[in-house]
């Protein structure tokens, strides 16, 4: 990968209690690109995100963002550094209005942010559905609208890296297309996007790079196209596994 890395993981080990999920996870996320992480259930995809975002402690290994060591920083410090995390599922405050939900995306900036009203207006302009329902309770939004709300909220502070976990889950095909379009637009503006998707094919089709995780280790890291056409990937999703030896050595294959 010729492009400069926005995010680098090196030998990250993390897990829950006695259980280790990430076994020395190592990969790079290039700047201004969409990188999709795929892998079977239990491969550690969501765990990687939680560890990057400081919700889970990395026992060893380092995580670097734009060259700076960010291992085990707090979510708030990571937001300030320019990282945003949109987890799986519904992550809204159901009894607050849509507008107040969005405003909370700027909490980490504190009082330093003077153009907040303008930013919120711009966000609402970009998503007319949310503007229409700005003063309603967020619980009245549809699943897709809630996801849009989460993305808008995450983008309020102009992050340089977006971690987004299963954005398409539970959304209509049209909504998925729209969500992917937003991500592409962000990439074109220079934002690095790291995405987890079950829907591997359509996600890789719109991505620049692909990472295959298995048992908490990077098995393949290549261009999205190469990952999409790799016969081992098909085998992995049909219940097989990728032996580290298959790629020639024990280290994850990096082109």
């Amino acid at each position: 990968m010729a492009t400069e890395a926005a995010l680098e993981l090196d030998g990250v080990v993390a897990g829950y209690g006695q259980m280790t999920i990430l076994n020395g996870t190592t990969f790079k996320v290039p700047a201004s690109s969409i990188t999709t992480v795929i892998g079977p259930n239990g491969a550690g995809k969501s765990t990687v995100f939680k560890t990057i975002f400081g919700l889970l402690k990395a026992r060893t290994g380092t995580i670097r963002f734009q060259g700076r060591d960010i291992t085990n920083l707090s979510p708030r410090a990571l937001i300030e550094a320019g990282i945003c995390y949109v987890p799986q599922g519904r992550n809204i405050f159901p009894q607050l209005s849509v507008r107040h939900n969005i405003e909370l995306g700027a909490v980490a900036a504190g009082r330093g942010l003077t153009d907040m009203p303008a930013r919120i207006e711009a966000a609402l302009d970009r998503f007319p559905v949310l503007r229409k329902k700005a003063d309603r309770q967020a619980s009245t939004l549809s699943g897709g609208e809630q996801k849009q709300l989460e993305i808008v909220r995450g983008l309020l502070l102009d992050p340089k890296l977006v971690l987004i976990d299963e954005p398409s889950i539970g959304l209509s095909p049209l909504m998925v297309q729209e969500t992917f379009a937003i991500l592409t637009e962000l990439r074109n503006k220079g934002v690095a996007i790291l995405m987890i998707e079950q829907n591997a094919k359509s996600a890789l089709a719109m991505s620049d790079f692909g990472i295959v995780l298995e048992l908490g280790q990077t098995r393949i890291m290549d261009t999205a196209e190469a990952v999409l056409n790799d016969p081992r990937v098909a085998a992995l999703f049909l219940g097989g596994s990728i032996e580290p030896k298959a790629s020639g050595d024990n280290a994850p294959q990096v082109n």
Binding site: P75, P87, N91, F93, Q95, E103, G105, V107, A108
Partner: peptide, 23 residues
């Protein structure tokens, strides 16, 4: 107030509140 919204957010969804950097 913003503090009030942050309190409500904490009550309604503490995990998401933490992810947004709400103390």
């Amino acid at each position: 107030t913003s503090v009030g919204h942050q309190m409500q957010a904490t009550a309604q969804n503490p995990t998401t509140a933490r992810i947004l950097g709400i103390p």
